[in-house]
Design a binder for these strands. Sequence first.
DNA 1: CCGCTTTGTTCCAATTATTGAAACCAGGTT
DNA 2: AACCTGGTTTCAATAATTGGAACAAAGCGG
Lengths: 250, 250
Amino acid sequence: MNQSLQKSAQILETLMKGPTPVGVNEFAHALGMPKSTVSRFLSTMESLGFVRRDLESGKFYLGLRLFELGCKAIEDVGLRNVAIPEMERLRDTIDENVLLTVLEDTQITYLDKIDCRQAIVSQTNVGGTAPAYCVSSGKAMLAFDAERLEKVIEKGLTSFTSLTIVEPDKLRRECKKIREQGYAINKGEFRVDVTGIGAPIFNARGEVVGAISTATPALRMNRNRWQTHIEAVTQTGNTISRLLGAPNRG
Amino acid sequence: MNQSLQKSAQILETLMKGPTPVGVNEFAHALGMPKSTVSRFLSTMESLGFVRRDLESGKFYLGLRLFELGCKAIEDVGLRNVAIPEMERLRDTIDENVLLTVLEDTQITYLDKIDCRQAIVSQTNVGGTAPAYCVSSGKAMLAFDAERLEKVIEKGLTSFTSLTIVEPDKLRRECKKIREQGYAINKGEFRVDVTGIGAPIFNARGEVVGAISTATPALRMNRNRWQTHIEAVTQTGNTISRLLGAPNRG
DNA sequence: CCGCTTTGTTCCAATTATTGAAACCAGGTT
DNA sequence: AACCTGGTTTCAATAATTGGAACAAAGCGG
């Protein structure tokens, strides 16, 4: 057990749990360390960005490097562990934002987003929601969850654009088609300028537990890109499903 | 300079900057450390919560302790509490993404983003960084921090697009102009399709402590929008500065 | 099923870094 | 001017760390 890391952790803990800012002498008393030891540690931690020193008082706060690291740390959770490497591969293949969603009631929630390298993207907020029946990942999940599909229909299909599917039977036929082809497409059904391709994710019992999808400005999708992306997204959904122990679906 | 903390920082940096998860051997190669050294460090960092090990693969991610520390770190930046309501007003006025940044060494860090309602936006990662000299908020801060400006110049001005300012004197003249007009503009200097308007934020001692900026796809910026946005961003920067007790700058 | 390769862990003699009391510095107060 | 407090730097003494080697486990190809 590395002693230096333990001491630095104690310093960070003091800053996280108690009032800030904190001076060298305060640390020495709080942690039972000689002030020369504390002073040297803080100097190193400051140069690494783990703490920052208030110029007026000379006292210390937690550094913004931790904020940067923390933003990255939160990205790796739950279904994400399995999905992220595959989403990253998909993003690398098609260079579009790749989203991870789950179905909650009649809406989808964006659990995660793998960012592409394009400067112009369709905006999606991790933690945000959207109606399931008019986005690609939502339709991909509804197609394999008949009970939830009927619940969505029962709740009512509000029009968001002229392309939104609002007739129940049309949505049912759309879902049948999705089951057959293994992916869903959205072309401006929720937002006029946004297109997407979604594929369901199944668990070991064959239940749909999530979906991955792309989100692309419509102007970037030509015929060739559609075909390439459909294949890549479908394959990624299958791969993630297999990693979760799902039975083979083709 | 404590060697152990440096090594742990390198490990965290590898996890933050590159693809994850990462194995012991990968760290050893990436960092030029013996795998015994890496293995011991990871073991200690895991017990402290700084990294977490995927049970299946044995590979490592950044730990959620960093997320906890990062949340506290950003709380300590009082700037956010003051800035957010004004940023929201700005977003409501111009309907573009509004960003809050601070200057760290020669780069900016995105502390916060207030999302607009547009479907197509310029992508920005909270917790992410960018070189200060070729984004609007970075230039807005450098203009009022001569020492930091010279440090950036000394480090070198890499070209990102054909519009990036890479001549030191041209950057200095640009900063002089920014000081005069009170705002900075970026038109494709860092990413070709992205424009932005940035305004500095000052504290009670008249020191620049941050900046707000917009981030907009270039195709959405016509002449009228430029003028409207410049006035709104500049006014918001002034308002936030006044709230922080800054002397009046006009 | 066996041999090989790769990844990761543990050991321990050798090496290096760290330690912390003391000395010193700076600023504020009496 | 003297004293107090907080913080930095020094350096002989001390402790921690190192990293190659040995070992273990898992996966792969023949």
